[in-house]
Structures are given as structure tokens and as C-alpha cells.
Design a protein around this nucleic acid. Structure first.
Length: 424
RNA sequence: GGAGGGGUCGCAUAGUGGUCUAGUGCGCCCGCCUGCUAAGCGGGUUCCGGGGUAACUCGGUCGAGGGUUCAAAUCCCUCCCCCUCCGCCA
């Protein structure tokens, strides 16, 4: 969230960015509540100060009658404090709730526009492959190489589930290993994380209350399934003060992700592009505010290195104000071309969230050689999302008979050069 | 899941209703003293919020949240976490 102080001092900017995001947020109500809060706070704190002083005096008073007079007086003060406190609590509860609804401010570089049609194409890298035959979509290739089984996934778990077996299961694992190793080599610390988090953790990361409809949760206990590893990474340092000299901290981890995609039944139904459960390799950075712009560039470069090494054509988009995520001030998406289904697949989203999540999750750090504490900036980027990268490899490396070449970088992980066609 | 023990300032500990403005030791920071170092001496050392240009000041903060009281680290209730043992188990 944005700090109250920031909203107070930059109200116009905050309101303008909310409009640019094509959304709404109760900024005026927050400003009003803030003023009410401070007015009451001054009264109630003055009364508390009085009670503290007098109560201490009562302890030191020997005269019983004198004590009794003061106790009665303080009883009245106590009643008044309670009355004011009740009002204050109500205001603070509403204030907190409303603060949770305000999205991050926008970086000035963010293109303006109401929805995804205004996203800006930054760069296209690699030539789109030309095939001397009609390239097949991955669900057909999956049948030919005999590793994709959508029906049995649906049988055990319903629609939007599938199973992989044999070389395709192995291809996914190879990609995960490959990406973890690549990012690890670049200095990112590998992390293994919980896949279920408490409700408080989901609030801290900004998933709740807004995205409740997209989350799976345990029926009886306080556990939510992570929709992305980002949620866990944010909570790594929740309610902590990071000692001086530790930033930047760069992490990478692989987790499954669980999302309730309650979208219209007709969209993205073919194949495995969008499921309720998928794998993802995620990068996450904690850094000092002065570093976050450079760290975002570095994260995008990290993410891009994967399709580049794999020889997959991709493009980079700068998300516009209407499409950018709630927590983010600036986001780049990476999309890989899938020639079989003739579509760009989003495989990464790299975002600078500034100190937005740090405020929400109560994360501070000690700057070296300086007094006090500051809020770190936090960034995240997929590196990359999995079944989609599997799709991209399958569709870009397919051959006429439906067999699939294994990109050179993956061959050591796969132990094979070609995924053979077993059904013609 | 059962039984017991425990959560206090960076660390270790003291504190069972008012003398706690949470003490002491260690660590750390500043200063004094000092050929150097060590020791010694003096001062400082949580975080959040309010007021103030500032010096400063007020409130809150002893795992979390409620309650009792003029007054709570201390008493009561609920919850969380950690440790030991038993059960179960990948």
C-alpha cells in the first residue's frame, strides 16, 4: 500500500494515477478519515497522558481520602478515553480497509491507455519461423508424441487439468532445471518455499482482499494456495527489519501456482495454455530505492535470456496504465511466439513495485551509515512460466512428422535430441 | 492428535498490580583518558504514531488480540509460535 503520509502529500498524483489505471479508489475518503483520526488522536492522547500522570501519583499517595477522590476522577477520564477510542478504532479500521484498495502510483514512463490494446511494443526478437508445412498446435503434437493427456486430467480433477507423461513431462522438468541453473549462475539465490500460506500472508502481498475470487483455499484451515511464488517471496521478510549491508537480495524459485480462473468457458479452452495448476520459475528482488530501476532492467534481461538461449522468437511489451497490475509501478511482459496456434504467449511479467509491498508487509531495512529505517523496493519477474514455455518449444521445434527437436541447451537435461513421433 | 515447558530491548537474563521512565550483563555507537592496544570512566542504544522549523515532547509497543483495574510485563480469556516426550507418518 501507499503510506498515509505519501497520499497526504501527493493526493493529486495518486488520484490521477487511479484514473489512468481506469479504476477507482477512495482517496478522498482516506484524506477525510486521516483528518478525523488526527483530531481525535490528539484528544485521546492528552487524556491518556493525564491518566498516566495521576495514576502514578495515586500510587504514591498515602492519604486514603485523597486517593479516593482521584480514583473517581480517573474513572471518569477512563470512560471518556474509552468513548473516544471506540470512535478512533472505527476510523482506523475503515482507513486501513480503504488504504488496501489504493493501487500503486505509476512510473511516468508507463504508456497511457485504458486496456491491453494500448500496451506498447518495445521490441521483437528473433524471426518468426516459417514451416514448409502447416505447423500443428501443441495439443496435436502432444498426441503425436504421446505425452499430453487432457482427458485423464479432466477425469480426475475436472476441466483445465491435464497430465503429462514421458518426454513431455521430462521436457517441463528440463526447462525448470535449466532456468533455475541459468538464474542461479547469474547470482540469484535459489529458494524453496511453502505452497500454502496464511490469510495474513496473502493480505501482506496484496492478493487479498481484492483477488479472493482467484485463490484456492483450504476448506477448514487458514491456508491459501499460492497463485504465484511472488506471494511467498514478499512474506519472506514480512514484519522484519533487514540488517544493513544485505541489499540487494536476489532470489529465484520454482513453485506450482494455483489459480481459480473463473472466466468464460469458451476462452483458451484448447490445450494447456491456461490451467488451474501450473509450474513457474520466479525471480524476486529486494533492493534499495535508488537501485530498483536498474534492477527492473536486469530482471527483464534475465527473463529474455531464456528464449534467447532456447532460440524462441519473443517480444517485449510495456504494459499501459490500464493493464498494469495493482502492485506495480511499471511492468514489462515477455511473450513467446507459438506458431502452431498462431499466438503470442505471455511467459513473463516483470514488475517494479517500489515500496508498495514493503509498506503493506511491514518490511524495513537499515541503510548503511545512516540513522533509522527505510522501506526497500521489491521487484518480481517470472523466469519463465512453464507450460507455456513447453508449448513454445513444442510448436517452434516441431517437424513435419510431428516429432519435436530438443533445443541444444536442453539436450543435457533431456538426454535426447528429438522427441519422436509415436503416432503418425 | 495427547502431555508438559517456554515466548521480556541486537543476544543473555531480572522482573508475580503502583518505587518499571522495563533493571543488569554482553554486544554496538559517541566522548573522556591513553605512545598503540586492552582496561577504566561518562553518555547513548527498539519500533510505530501524534504535535513542533527545531531542540524536544506526548501516546502506544514485554508473541498477537480481547478483558479486569484509577493503574497490567505482572491477573483473567482466546489464539499463534518454539522446545521436550508420546502417538502417527513421506
Amino acid at each position: 500500500m501507499l503510506s498515509l503520509q505519501f497520499i497526504r502529500e501527493n493526493a493529486d498524483r495518486v488520484k490521477r494515477d487511479v484514473l489512468l489505471r481506469n479504476t477507482t479508489a477512495p482517496v478522498d475518503r482516506i484524506l477525510q478519515l486521516d483528518e478525523e483520526r488526527r483530531a481525535i488522536l490528539q484528544q485521546v492522547e492528552a487524556l491518556r497522558a493525564k491518566r498516566n500522570t495521576v495514576s502514578k501519583a495515586i500510587g504514591a499517595t498515602k492519604d486514603a481520602a485523597d486517593r479516593e477522590v482521584r480514583i473517581v476522577e480517573m474513572r471518569l477520564v477512563g470512560d471518556e478515553i474509552e468513548r473516544l477510542d471506540t470512535g478512533l478504532n472505527k476510523i482506523e479500521a475503515e482507513l486501513k480497509e480503504k488504504l488496501y484498495e489504493v493501487p500503486n502510483i505509476l512510473d511516468p514512463d508507463v504508456p497511457k491507455g485504458p486496456d491491453e490494446t494500448s500496451n506498447q511494443l518495445v521490441e521483437v526478437v528473433g524471426d518468426l519461423p516459417r514451416f514448409p508445412f502447416a505447423p500443428r498446435p501443441h495439443w496435436e503434437l502432444g498426441e503425436i508424441v504421446g505425452g499430453l493427456d487432457i482427458e485423464r486430467g479432466a477425469k480426475m480433477s475436472g476441466s483445465r487439468f491435464y497430465t503429462l507423461r514421458g518426454p513431455l513431462a521430462k521436457l517441463q522438468r528440463a526447462l525448470i532445471q535449466f532456468m533455475l541453473n541459468e538464474h542461479g549462475r547469474a547470482g540469484f539465490t535459489e529458494a524453496y518455499l511453502p505452497y500454502m500460506l496464511t490469510e495474513a500472508s496473502l493480505y501482506a502481498a496484496g492478493q487479498l482482499p481484492k483477488f479472493r475470487d482467484n485463490l484456492y483455499r483450504d476448506f477448514e484451515e487458514d491456508y491459501y494456495f499460492i497463485p504465484t511464488a511472488e506471494v511467498a517471496f514478499v512474506n519472506l521478510y514480512r514484519d522484519e527489519i533487514i540488517p544493513a549491508g544485505q541489499l540487494p537480495m536476489r532470489f529465484v524459485g520454482h513453485t506450482p501456482c494455483f489459480r481459480r480462473e473463473k472466466m468464460s468457458a469458451g476462452r483458451d479452452v484448447r490445450g494447456i495454455k491456461r490451467g488451474h495448476q501450473f509450474e513457474k520459475v520466479e525471480m524476486f528482488v529486494y533492493c534499495e530505492p535508488e537501485q530498483s530501476e536498474a534492477e527492473l532492467e536486469a530482471l527483464v534481461a534475465r527473463a529474455r535470456s531464456i528464449p534467447e538461449i532456447l532460440g524462441l522468437p519473443y517480444r517485449v511489451l510495456a504494459l499501459c496504465s490500464g493493464d498494469i497490475g495493482f502492485n506495480s509501478t511499471k511492468t514489462f511482459d515477455l511473450e513467446i511466439w507459438a506458431p502452431g496456434q498462431g499466438e503470442w504467449l505471455e511467459v513473463s511479467s516483470a514488475s517494479n513495485c517500489l515500496d508498495f509491498q514493503a509498506w503493506r508487509a511491514n518490511i524495513r531495512y537499515r541503510p548503511g551509515g545512516e540513522q533509522g529505517v527505510r522501506h526497500p523496493h521489491m521487484l518480481n519477474a517470472s523466469g519463465l512460466a512453464l507450460p507455456r514455455t513447453v508449448i513454445a518449444v513444442m510448436e517452434n521445434y516441431q517437424r513435419e512428422d510431428g516429432s519435436i527437436e530438443v533445443p541444444e541447451a536442453l539436450q543435457p537435461y533431456m538426454g535426447m535430441n528429438v522427441i519422436p513421433a509415436v503416432m503418425a
